[in-house]
């Protein structure tokens, strides 16, 4: 039984609740050659957290954590928007609008941030929570400097299409998440990278003794995590056609950490599950969407989310499962 069974069961429960009590929740319509409906909406809106959770999964599996991805989203969004809009009084002022360069430049900037985190953690031996807290705080400052304190707006249909367009009936962000998920799965499970990540998180001293280059592994996962932050930043920026250094991706790193832990990856490191993290991200979004469509006030959303996270985490814990299984009827062996 994979570790994400509890999260998947909870997701099914939330959907089942809607099947019974929320009219037309499962209604999917085709308009302008693309699908619309609450389910599609959940998929689409889960994308930024889903992207973040993929990278976060690997970082957490090494026994670390990355608090800076929200800020990395802001930086990547600002770089992209800056290269398109060329706002005056910023480092991007002057020059031609280069939408084609926006995405690679934004991703490079994000990976630079990840490299910085990785070097702090792997080479300078910072505690991951402190190392990434630095960029969590300073990163938004950097983004604001790049934008000169403004919200950089632009109008560039080709860029906005990343977030707003659709391909083969499904919104583009959903495809982006799906492709990233497949690439991450291949990179970790078709090579031995996943095993090395798990070994590093499971027992760092033993990993050193079997010759795993833990530094390289850590730098790689922090860089990949920031790359995910960069992708998420592009999606959010494309969606609103603006880069808001103050609010883009604010607290989203926390949602990603929740999605990962709900998805069955232990925060202490070791075994990880990318599928579980995606299930976790979908669960969080399904909850939010359910609560919103039922007209419950948004303040309650957060409390309810917390309750669900606690339940899922308890269901994952072997000690808790043992203690409740005592009250359940014993299975009689056939």
């Amino acid at each position: 039984m994979p570790n994400w069974t509890a999260a998947a069961a909870m997701l099914v429960a939330v959907l089942f609740f809607n099947l019974l009590f929320t009219p037309s929740f499962f209604h999917v319509a085709i308009r302008d050659g693309r699908l619309f409906g609450s389910l599609i909406d959940i998929l689409n809106r889960a994308v930024p957290v889903g992207l973040l959770s993929l990278g976060m999964t690997l970082v957490i599996a090494t026994g670390g954590v990355d608090l800076s991805v929200g800020a990395v989203m802001a930086i990547s969004g600002t770089v992209a928007a800056g290269l398109i809009a060329r706002p005056p009084e910023t480092p991007f002022a002057g020059g031609k609008s280069v939408p084609a360069l926006a995405i690679p430049a934004a991703l490079l900037a994000a990976m630079g941030c990840g490299l910085f985190n990785g070097i702090l953690v792997a080479i300078l031996d910072f505690q991951p929570i402190i190392a990434t807290l630095l960029l969590m705080v300073a990163g938004r400052g950097v983004a604001q400097l790049l934008a000169n304190g403004q919200i950089v707006t632009f109008s560039e249909p080709s860029f906005a299409a990343i977030a707003r367009g659709a391909t083969a009936m499904l919104p583009n962000p959903v495809w982006l998440l799906a492709i990233t998920f497949v690439l991450f799965s291949l990179a970790t499970r078709a090579t031995a990278l996943g095993l090395f990540v798990e070994a590093t998180g499971s027992n760092p001293s033993a990993a050193n003794l079997v010759g795993i280059n833990a530094r390289a592994v850590k730098i790689a996962v922090y860089t990949l995590c920031a790359l995910c932050g960069g992708l998420a930043g592009i999606v959010i920026t494309g969606d609103i056609q603006a880069a808001d250094a103050n609010n883009s991706g604010l607290y989203m790193e926390l949602d990603a950490i929740l999605a990962v832990s709900v998805g069955g990856t232990a925060l202490a490191g070791g075994r990880f599950s990318l599928v579980g993290s995606i299930v976790g991200a979908l669960l969080m979004q399904a909850l939010t969407t359910t609560i919103l469509t039922r007209g419950v006030s948004p303040e309650i959303t957060l409390v309810l989310k917390a309750a669900v996270v606690v339940t899922v985490c308890l269901l994952q814990a072997p000690a808790f499962r043992d203690s409740i299984s005592r009250y359940l009827p014993k299975k009689v062996p056939a």
Binding site: L195, E198, S202, N203, S205, A206, L209, A266, G270, R271
Partner: peptide, 12 residues
Amino acid sequence: AEGIFPELSIRE
């Protein structure tokens, strides 16, 4: 402390 990877399988 320096040998097994407790979360991994015997094979791994």
